[in-house]
């Protein structure tokens, strides 16, 4: 599992660097919020797989749904002049940390049981 994540992440990084994907500068803030959402989904997926509650459909829809929602909300916030992206940063950031805490605890538990 960890190998798969690491390998495909590396592959994605290489693809992104090699391919001339260019996003207009004005969209950069939306992309950063979307990245946060994506990171949250991945951590959530790892946690769910440790808890053996992993559901493929939920994982995939959560990933793309979160990205679109975060980017879209940030865009709408920009249009309305309300910094909604702060909400996305806050929520996804705190969830990232709590997910990481679960993963850490799970791993430590497993190590101690051995």
């Amino acid at each position: 599992m960890a190998y798969i994540i690491a390998l495909s992440l590396l592959l994605g990084l290489i693809i992104g660097f090699v391919l001339p994907i260019n996003i207009p500068f004005s969209y950069a803030p939306y992309l950063s919020v979307a990245i946060l959402a994506a990171l949250d989904s991945v951590f959530g997926g790892i946690r769910a797989s440790f808890e053996e509650k992993f559901d493929n459909l939920i994982f995939i829809t959560g990933f793309f749904g979160n990205i679109i929602l975060a980017g879209g909300l940030a865009y709408i916030g920009d249009v309305l002049g309300v910094p909604i992206y702060l909400a996305a940063v806050f929520v996804f950031g705190s969830r990232l940390f709590s997910n990481f805490a679960y993963i850490r605890r799970y791993l430590i538990d497993r190590m101690r049981r051995r």
């Binding site: 992440l9 990084l13 693809i15 660097f17 500068f25 992309l31 990245i35 995939i60 990933f63």
Partner: peptide, 26 residues
């Protein structure tokens, strides 16, 4: 079922990697 899980995780990580590198470039 396990196989499809791996595919989806790989896909998601791939997309995440592309996004990260794009952002990094910007």
């Amino acid at each position: 079922k396990g196989f499809s899980i791996y595919i989806s995780i790989a896909l998601v990580s791939l997309v995440l990697g592309i996004m990260l590198s794009t952002q990094f470039k910007i």
